[in-house]
């Protein structure tokens, strides 16, 4: 009898350790850093845009887009719209059918759940204040990323 409860205890310890270990498996957040853009999408009856940072930084260093294309480090702070993209600005510098898929593939970018607010997903400020609070950063404090003298493509 004494031995059997010990076996039960051992099994329980084993089960607990397995649970702890599986809980200890780091839930990787690929979407850490993903930007949801919904300045105009919901209003236009489109799904909001998901910009996967992880996919793009495998191919481009930060400076490629945040300097040459003048994209500011602020979710929703660039007032990107389809007219500018078709004109070759912002996403349109590559998403033109020659470097990356062209604008006809609406759904590939406009793929977020409808109603998802503009945000930097999983960011500290997002976790502290809820989605959309990054807008609380004052424009004066947010960095201007275009090169001062030569200027990026505007």
């Amino acid at each position: 009898m004494n031995a059997s409860w010990r076996e039960v205890a051992a099994c329980a310890a084993l089960a607990a350790s397995v649970m702890v270990l599986s809980g200890g498996v780091r839930e990787a957040r690929a979407e850490y850093g993903d930007v949801v853009m919904n300045n105009y999408s919901d209003g236009a009856g489109m799904r909001p845009v998901v910009f996967p940072h992880w996919f793009h930084r495998v191919r481009f260093r930060c400076k490629a887009c945040h300097t040459d294309l003048g994209i500011k480090f602020k979710a929703g702070g660039n007032e990107i719209n389809m007219l500018k993209i078709i004109d070759g600005q912002y996403c349109g510098a590559c998403h033109n059918g020659s470097v990356a898929w062209s604008v006809e593939n609406c759904d590939l970018c406009h793929s977020a759940k409808p109603g998802t607010p503009t945000q930097l997903h999983e960011s500290t400020i997002n976790l502290l204040g809820g989605p959309g609070t990054s807008a609380a950063v004052t424009p004066a404090a947010s960095p201007m990323t275009a090169k001062p003298a030569t200027g990026g493509r505007k």
Partner: peptide, 16 residues
């Protein structure tokens, strides 16, 4: 949590 499970893009986009 951010992609729409009903979006046709999910069949085409690369999985992280």
């Amino acid at each position: 949590g951010i992609h729409d499970p009903k979006s046709p893009a999910l069949r085409l986009l690369q999985q992280p």
